[in-house]
């Protein structure tokens, strides 16, 4: 069972994204890469980036990066480690979590507002990964 966050976890996550028909359907026109930023907190010492290259309903690749090495992405979805755990466990609605300040979303708002369904499905795919937490 891969540990969150790790390179193995990201690989499993990408597999799940590419298996997820709902995501593929909702994001069939989507073009743009994403960074999931896991910010440091009391339980997690160093911020890391999960970079995902997303294109037309599929993830073409991605990996885990330290914050100073991460590629720039069109969108950043970031929050502290503790909140990521709750999100992956399905305790947070991905969009509501932004509205109440548990997560931050940066990027073209025009684009993201048209793909809220796809963005929600993408984040929810993380629930599907059999995950071990640190």
């Amino acid at each position: 069972m891969p540990v969150f966050p790790s390179k193995d976890w990201v690989a499993s996550f990408i597999e799940e994204i590419n298996r997820n028909k709902k995501y593929e359907d909702a994001a069939k026109d989507w073009e743009g890469d994403f960074n999931f930023v896991v910010e440091k907190d009391q339980k997690f010492p160093e911020t890391v980036y999960i970079y995902l290259d997303l294109y037309h309903g599929k993830c073409r690749g991605g990996s885990l990066y330290k914050s100073n090495e991460a590629p720039k992405a069109a969108f950043n979805y970031s929050g502290p480690y503790q909140n990521w755990i709750r999100l992956i466990k399905g305790e947070f609605d991905p969009l509501k979590a932004v509205l109440v300040g548990k997560f931050k979303l940066k990027g073209s708002m025009m684009k993201i507002m048209r793909y809220t369904g796809a963005a929600k499905e993408l984040v929810r795919t993380a629930n599907l990964v059999d995950t071990q937490f640190q």
């Binding site: 359907d25 909702a26 069939k28 969009l95 507002m113 793909y115 369904g117 929600k120």
Partner: peptide, 16 residues
């Protein structure tokens, strides 16, 4: 319709 925010919190998931 798929791009509307109305799909996000609808009680039943909807695909195209």
């Amino acid at each position: 319709a798929m791009e509307s925010t109305g799909v996000v919190a609808n009680p039943r998931e909807s695909e195209s």
